[in-house]
Amino acid sequence: MVRIVLVGLLVAVVLAVLLSPFASRFPDGLERVAEDKGFIDKGEGNEVISSPIPDYAMPGVKHEGVATSLAGLVGTIFIFGLAYGLGHLLKGRRN
C-alpha cells in the first residue's frame, strides 16, 4: 500500500509541477460557451470570496510557469493531506 501511495503521489506531483505550466490557455468548454453566447460578463467581478492563490498562480512569483508549478505543488500536497485526513477521521469515528 505504501508503494502505490508513493507512486500515485509522485505521478500527481509530476503532473502538477512539471506539466501544468504547459497546459492549454484556451478557455474551457463552459467559458467558451459563455463567451460565444454572451453571458461571460455575468461571472466577472461577482466572486463572493477572494482566494489566496487565484487562478492557480502563486502570488508574488514573477515567472508565470514557476507560479503555476508552485500553486500545483501546494494544492496537490494539501489535497492529499485533506482527503487522507478525512478518511482517517471517518474510520476513527467507528472505533
Binding site: V5, G8, V11, V13, A16, G87, L90
Partner: peptide, 24 residues
C-alpha cells in the same frame, strides 16, 4: 472505510486535482 481505502482517498484526490490543471 477500510485500511486500504484511506491512502487511496488521498492519492485519488491529489491525482485528480493535478490532472484537472492540465487543460488540453
Amino acid at each position: 472505510l477500510g485500511e486500504k481505502h484511506i491512502p487511496l482517498l488521498g492519492v485519488m484526490a491529489a491525482f485528480i486535482f493535478a490532472a484537472q490543471m492540465l487543460n488540453f
